[in-house]
Structure formats: C-alpha cells, structure tokens
Simulated scan of single mutants.
Amino acid sequence: MRVPFIKMHGLGNDFIVLDARETPLPALSTATVRALADRREGIGCDQLIVLEPDETATCRMRIFNQDGGEVEACGNASRAVGMLLGEPATISTAGGVIETHPSDSGVAVDMGEPRFEWDAIPLAYAMDTMSLPLGWGALEQPVAVNVGNPHAVFFVGNVDAIALDIIGPEVEIDEIFPARVNVNVASVEDRETIRLRVWERGAGLTRACGTGACATAIAAMRRGLVDREVTVHLPGGPLLIGWGEDNRITMTGPATEAFRGEFDWGDYA
C-alpha cells in the first residue's frame, strides 16, 4: 500500500502529516510510528500527525511523538495543519477542539483555556500549581499548567546554562507527574519577551514547542512577570502568545511545508 505524506515544520519542530480523511490507513502501531520517525532509516520527524474525518469539526488531528506514544496536543502541528487546510477551521484533538485562522504572519490558533487544578495537570496529589514545592538540581518551584497537555515551567536566569538534555528526562518521568510532563526552562527578558527551551515529553529537546510557549507565557502571566501578550523566543524562532480576557490562549506563528512524497506501508509495519 503506497501512502502519500507531507513533511512540514513549525520553527524547526518537524512533522510527517498523513491525510486519512478520505482514505483510511491501516492500524497504526507504535513500531510503525518509531520507524517512520527514525531520521536515519525512516522519513524522520519529531511528531507523526494523522488527519481523520470528524462529525463536528473540520477534521480530527491525532498526534504521535517519535517514541510512538499518542499525545493530546501540539501547537506547532496545529499551525501546520491550519496552513494545509487553508481557511478558518476547527480541529478536534485529544486535548479538545481548537480553531485555526491563516493570516499574513502565519497561522493563528485558538488553543482554548488553560487548566491549573492539580488533578487537571495531572499531579499525583494536591499541591499549589502556581509554585510546586519541588526541585530537581538547579530547577525549583515550577508552575504547572495544562494547555491540552501537561507542562512544568521553570523560570531561570539563563536558559542556556541549564543542562536540559540531562535534567529534562528526570523531570519528565518523575512520579509526581502520572502522565509524564513537558519540561520548560524560561528566562523573562522584559514584560513582552521570554526566552524558552523545552524538553518535550516523548520527543526530547526540540527547536520549538507551541504548547510549551503557551504554557510558559501563561505561567509568567500568572506570576505577574509579563503582560497579557508576549513574544516567546525558542531556538527555532519566535511565537506570539496572547491570553485574552475570555481566558482563551491565542498562538500566532509560521508553518512551512518542506516536501511531499510517498512510502510503502509494508516497509514500516
């Protein structure tokens, strides 16, 4: 079975997009996701995205990290899919329904409302999500927030001074986070600017993480460190994040189609 794919990226966070809205795909196994995501013997990606029909939304988006695990949300992939759809759309995800709007500066995504309750993150037991009384080496007292998927946000003086490739995996799988967690280290430069690096759950260090930018901006806003609209600079580039009076998050940034191709499903099954 020959399957077409689209290779895309948002600020360097790259995806394989499979469009199954009209032609269903065979059952997708963890092994198949890992094989396709492999950068040496597969197509290579941070996440595999599958588009499916949906009764109430424009389409459904399923998101698989390169380790094969299915996750709830991906902001950069949302922009990529919004660009592919080419018009205002609603996209159903495991983390809820989002809206996308193509614009001159890329794609604006309504990411929904953030959640701060300890059991919505989720955490293993109740604690103050504004400042978790926890620490891992140089990282202490993170803000916990769920923006469709779980995030821990640490504010530090210099994001580049943190060995995130070493400490990120430790925090990700800590038992306090039953569903694991995305690990964000951020430095606030001024009331409109944040610098951010992310260890992404199931994917590792990434050049950009849309939900991480949203979570970090919201965490900084909750602590009164920045205004209600900020630019978050990631290694791959900037994203504009706004938190409206209606409690909804808007993320705006670019998405790029790299190339298209096709593969034989049997080679990766």
Rank of each mutant, 00 (worst) to 15 (best):
L11R: 09
A94F: 00
N76M: 06
R34G: 04
A203V: 15
T256L: 14
A217K: 02
E200R: 07
G75Y: 06
R260F: 00
G44N: 07
I166M: 10
P26C: 07
G69I: 01
G137L: 01
P122G: 05
F154S: 12
G224H: 02
V230H: 03
F15C: 08
H101S: 00
T56F: 14
M111E: 10
R34C: 15
P122K: 07
E22L: 11
G148R: 09
R223S: 07
M127V: 09
N149W: 01
D267T: 11
I167R: 05
E175L: 11
T100D: 09
F64H: 14
L85Y: 10
I6S: 08
I166Q: 15
P53H: 12
P133T: 04
P122I: 06
R191F: 02
M61S: 13
A89H: 10
T32R: 13
F154M: 13
G236I: 12
C59Q: 04
L205E: 12
V153M: 04
R60K: 15
L85V: 12
I49E: 09
V33K: 07
W243A: 05
I176R: 15
N149T: 14
V181F: 04
R248P: 02
L36S: 10
V109R: 03
E172Y: 04
H101F: 15
G237S: 04
E140M: 07
A258E: 12
R40D: 12
D264W: 10
R40F: 12
E113L: 06
R222T: 02
A94Q: 13
W199C: 11
M1Y: 00
I49K: 07
A208V: 09
V159H: 13
G266L: 13
V156I: 12
D190L: 06
R40V: 01
G204M: 10
E189Y: 00
V109A: 03
P24E: 03
L25H: 05
N146A: 12
E22I: 08
V185M: 02
G10F: 04
I63W: 11
L134P: 03
E200W: 13
A220F: 01
M127L: 14
E117A: 15
D14V: 09
V81P: 02
F116G: 00
L51D: 05
T211D: 13
N76K: 05
Q47L: 10
V156Q: 09
I6W: 03
T30E: 15
E229H: 07
V181E: 03
H151Q: 04
E55T: 14
C74N: 08
A37E: 03
V188Y: 08
R223D: 01
L196P: 06
A77H: 09
R207N: 13
F259V: 01
I91N: 04
L205I: 14
V143P: 09
I121S: 05
L84I: 13
F116T: 10
V232L: 03
G148F: 12
A94C: 04
D104Y: 00
D19V: 11
L36C: 08
E200I: 06
E99Y: 13
A126Y: 05
T193I: 01
A269N: 15
E72P: 00
A215I: 08
A31G: 01
R2H: 11
D119F: 11
R2T: 13
V147T: 15
E99M: 06
V188M: 07
M1C: 06
A27W: 09
P122N: 02
G236R: 13
L25C: 08
Y268T: 09
A120M: 07
G210S: 09
T211G: 10
A219P: 04
W243D: 01
I121E: 02
N146Y: 09
F15A: 06
E72M: 07
